[in-house]
Simulated scan of single mutants.
Amino acid sequence: MSSRPAFSPPSSARAYALRTSRGEFAVVDAPVASGVKARGVALLVPGFTGSKEDFTLLHEPLAARGYRTVAVDGRGQFESDGPADDQAPYAQQELARDVLAQAAALGGPVHLVGHSLGGQISRAAVLLDHSPFASFTLVASGPAQISDSQRQRVKLLRDALAVMGMAEVWEAMQAMVPPEEVELPDRGLGYQELLRRRWLGNKPAQLIATGRQLCTEPDRVAELAAVPLPLHVLSGARDDTWPVTLLDDMAVRLKARRTVVPGAEHSPNVEQPLVTARALADFWDTTGSPGLPLGSG
Score class of each variant (00 low, 15 high):
residue 151 R to Y: 00
residue 277 A to L: 03
residue 20 T to I: 01
residue 101 A to C: 08
residue 25 F to L: 06
residue 116 S to N: 04
residue 275 V to Q: 15
residue 118 G to Y: 02
residue 60 E to D: 14
residue 204 P to V: 03
residue 289 S to G: 10
residue 53 E to R: 12
residue 149 S to T: 09
residue 205 A to E: 14
residue 82 G to V: 08
residue 100 L to A: 11
residue 43 L to I: 04
residue 85 D to G: 14
residue 244 V to L: 04
residue 289 S to D: 15
residue 173 M to Q: 15
residue 245 T to N: 12
residue 254 L to I: 02
residue 52 K to L: 06
residue 122 S to D: 07
residue 95 L to K: 12
residue 125 A to F: 02
residue 152 Q to V: 12
residue 9 P to W: 00
residue 247 L to W: 03
residue 28 V to W: 02
residue 215 C to A: 13
residue 265 E to S: 12
residue 98 D to V: 08
residue 165 G to Q: 14
residue 238 R to M: 08
residue 108 G to Q: 15
residue 276 T to L: 03
residue 289 S to F: 00
residue 218 P to S: 10
residue 154 V to P: 02
residue 210 T to L: 02
residue 153 R to S: 13
residue 129 D to R: 14
residue 186 D to Q: 13
residue 271 E to Q: 11
residue 234 L to D: 12
residue 112 L to R: 03
residue 142 G to C: 04
residue 289 S to C: 13
residue 86 D to A: 13
residue 204 P to R: 04
residue 121 I to H: 01
residue 117 L to N: 04
residue 147 S to Q: 07
residue 154 V to C: 05
residue 26 A to M: 15
residue 84 A to Y: 07
residue 245 T to F: 04
residue 184 L to N: 14
residue 130 H to S: 15
residue 152 Q to Y: 02
residue 236 G to F: 02
residue 155 K to I: 13
residue 163 V to S: 12
residue 26 A to Q: 12
residue 49 T to C: 06
residue 281 A to I: 01
residue 3 S to D: 11
residue 240 D to V: 12
residue 4 R to A: 08
residue 127 L to M: 05
residue 269 N to P: 04
residue 146 I to R: 04
residue 151 R to C: 09
residue 69 T to L: 11
residue 18 L to D: 01
residue 135 S to F: 00
residue 213 Q to S: 10
residue 75 R to P: 05
residue 69 T to M: 07
residue 297 G to L: 13
residue 287 T to C: 11
